[in-house]
Amino acid sequence: MRSKFYILMVLALALSTLYACANTNSIIRKHPEALAGLTACSECHESTLGAMNHQATDFYKRHGSFSGANPQVCAACHQQSFCSDCHSHKEGIKPSEKFFIDAPERNLPHRGDYLTQHRIDGRVNPVACAKCHGRQNNERCKTCHR
């Protein structure tokens, strides 16, 4: 019991020291430029921020890696509502229906009649589907998959 307490104390002290020595500036809470549409970050930024260029063909595929590595960067422009439109645990409207006016060039999943096509896509790569429907947002699926 006592030794546990000491270990915790030492750990807390070590962490505090490391914390105090980090001295980095936090990523800004709100991006200074208000941007609309898929944005070419690389027009204004270099290195890793530039790599998040939203116009890159593979950004959509890779945005999960970027946010998994530094969610604070995304938060500078996106509230969680933006992510929830696709990453919902419960949702009634497909992203492609909700955002019809905003941007036809966006990569919204499930455009058109997806009830038919999902049978093929879901067989070919169920892994991609499970990321969003595996443990949530699957109330609808139950009408057919019991």
């Binding site: 169920p126 589907c129 499970a130 443990r135 699926c141």
Partner: peptide
């Protein structure tokens, strides 16, 4: 990957 997934389709 699909171990203990709760959606019936998975």
């Amino acid at each position: 990957y699909f171990f203990n997934m709760t959606a019936s389709s998975f």
